[in-house]
């Protein structure tokens, strides 16, 4: 089984994002594995532990992503490919085409895992575009994955606690979300081993792909937090009655 995991290197979820020059960000903050990708890595590693084969991590990023790749390799993938780019934002269609090319050249893939969405650009579409580029079926928001011969039964969250039970044939793309598994914590020997694992560097330019740039970031704006709450005092009874009055009469959010 040859499993690929597409991983994105993103600013820490708690880091404050400083906008530089209108459409860039201060990249000196701490970076992490995009949270949903952790579930993708874990599921790929479990699959290959069971069925044998290899897990290859693929990342499209600036070279600074190397540290994040080492962290990810400690979670079990056998090797990694870093496609080095200069830009911070690359649109989903271009990203998927690049990932597809790299995976096709290195593969063929039996299965590709990724997070259902990246925590920085929140595009929610790369899995689908990757599937289209490689002619593979795609399912995202996956919370359960049961592989069988040549196919898998998966469950997909569709909101309100409802789930779709889907049969999908290999090769396919699986978009992981929280609930799929409990990612492992790397142990020290895993961290040491990860340092020696092979990471192949590919320059985007060497792939000779014409980029579309069909989605461009024009500018970024920071979102300010609300100010301090108005505290409603008095006894519990008084406070809730006053709250209901405000919500109904002033805010008009209750009928």
């Amino acid at each position: 089984m040859k499993a690929y995991v597409c991983m994105k290197h993103v600013p820490d979820t708690a880091a404050s994002i400083k906008i530089v020059g209108g459409k860039q960000i201060d990249e000196t903050v701490k970076y992490i594995i995009s949270p949903h990708d952790e579930y993708a890595i874990e599921e790929a590693v479990r699959l290959v532990e069971k069925k044998g084969g290899e897990v290859v991590l693929v990342t499209l990023a600036k070279e600074a992503a190397m540290a994040t790749i080492r962290t990810a390799l400690a979670l079990g993938p056998h090797r990694a490919i870093l496609v080095r780019i200069d830009q911070t934002f690359l649109d989903s269609q271009d990203t998927a085409r690049i990932l597809a090319k790299v995976i096709a050249d290195d593969g063929p893939a039996d299965i590709i895992f990724a997070g259902k969405q990246a925590m920085d650009t929140e595009g929610m579409q790369t899995c689908y575009r990757l599937g289209a580029a490689l002619d593979m079926p795609v399912v995202t928001d996956v919370v359960r994955f049961d592989p069988a011969e040549g196919k898998a039964m998966v469950e997909r969250e569709i909101g309100g606690g409802e789930k779709e039970v889907i049969e999908i044939s290999f090769p396919c793309v699986i978009g992981a979300t929280k609930g799929l598994n409990e990612p492992r914590f790397p142990k020290l020997p895993d961290v040491m081993k990860a340092k020696k694992k092979d990471v192949k560097l590919i320059d985007l330019k060497s792939l000779n792909l014409q980029l579309d740039n069909s989605v461009q970031v024009i500018h970024l704006d920071s979102v300010s937090e609300r100010s301090k709450a108005k505290i409603i005092g008095g006894s519990t009874g008084e406070a809730v009655r006053e709250l209901v009055r405000i919500l109904r009469e002033e805010e008009k959010v209750l009928d």
Binding site: P11, T13, S16, I17, I19, I25, M119, D120, T121, E122, V215, Q216, V217, I218, H219, L220, D221, S222, V223
Partner: peptide
């Protein structure tokens, strides 16, 4: 939203 709602992005 970009960066989990910490910023918004205007996209073309």
């Amino acid at each position: 939203p970009f960066f989990s709602g910490r910023t918004t992005a205007t996209l073309q």
